[in-house]
Nucleic acid binder design. Sequence first.
DNA 1: CGTTTTTTTGAGAGCGGTCAATGATGGTGG
DNA 2: CCACCATCATTGACCGCTCTCAAAAAAACG
Lengths: 219, 219
Amino acid sequence: MLTMNSAVRPVPASTRSPGRLVALTPSLELPGFIMSFDRDEEIYGDGESADFIYRVVSGAVRICRLIDDGRRQISAFYLPGDVFGLEMDDTHSASAEAVTTCAIALVKRVAVQRAVAQDPSTAGKLWSLTSEQLRFTQDHLVMLGRRSATEKVGRFLLSMAGRASSGDTVSLAMSRLDIADYLGLTIETVSRTFTHLERQGAIGLNGAREVVFRNRAAL
Amino acid sequence: MLTMNSAVRPVPASTRSPGRLVALTPSLELPGFIMSFDRDEEIYGDGESADFIYRVVSGAVRICRLIDDGRRQISAFYLPGDVFGLEMDDTHSASAEAVTTCAIALVKRVAVQRAVAQDPSTAGKLWSLTSEQLRFTQDHLVMLGRRSATEKVGRFLLSMAGRASSGDTVSLAMSRLDIADYLGLTIETVSRTFTHLERQGAIGLNGAREVVFRNRAAL
DNA sequence: CGTTTTTTTGAGAGCGGTCAATGATGGTGG
DNA sequence: CCACCATCATTGACCGCTCTCAAAAAAACG
């Protein structure tokens, strides 16, 4: 019910460009290809074998895990330039889905391993990227532990602003439901908190997805 | 107030064995040394430069971050055999403290880098370890998002049992406060939940620290 | 313009937090 | 060995935040 396409791997509406080299980071180019995904399309599934490393070219991606009782926890959002899927396991421990229509660069893991064998510095870069993920996840963890809804939403907006803002305006790629599942709240509480922050004069709202910061200190 | 020794780096009550090689993993031995820490002693502090990688030889360690309002979030517990402190950053983003008296193996990061340069497979092992941390942190994250206190405590006990149990009995190294800060609850709620689970017949308690599983399915 | 999805708003209940006091535990010194 | 004290854990009463259920409003889509 949350996603229409969780059970069966859909054939992607994907353009698979015949691809040569794609950039994993500015300083790390590897043989791979670009693929595009529709909104809510699954990029990889929980439990699937992990054959690729991914980079967001455009759009946004969420990493989520479904819990027994039907709930969902989103552990991360990835925006253009972000690398994901580098858990060094044979199988994925969560699924990745397109928040919006997006273009993703894919690099085969074996290609990565080949590159590591030839250039030792590559290993350090990958370790570094993974380490960055770890720190980010820890930050997220801190945000989830015993904080008020207002604090959670405020921090969330600031962190998104730090990654995707132009001036004092942020365009949120994700829905209220996505935000709720990311923050461990309900959709209603998230919505109420937005209006609350607006009434306080901390933010302004142009539609549901565009947030203007009016008083960052109040977040 | 939480710890007596957070402000000033104490001179450890440490035995610094003149050390030759210590094992980071069974298959990875590097030049380093063993150091012992008293209960609540700081192993490294938030913001300090990260010069070592650590492995628990005996005892238990907690990784924590202090939040503005004086609260504390514990992001991980480490038990004998666990490696920690491998965030590949120049400075630590959290502090590590001894939960109990413990012995820790330390390996200088430069020694690690030397080893990586000589043997490329070492880089993979480190990446793998970091990746393991990442997965574990994600699991923790899922546990913190919108779950009842009973679920949190139950999961916590099971996860500790998976790592440190002998049969159906677990000895908890950490206090109720530590558990509370790990699960994003208060000490009172944790305590109430323990007694609740005991009344339900799910667990038995021999003192506060020893838990016996009577009905794992009920957790 | 009608239909579907998303978001907002409202009223009520429950879970966990807060404040406060009692009870258990463990270490220290007489 | 026991009395004492400090720390840790438990229990209780009450309150507030967030969840739940429900419906209306707004936006997105064909």
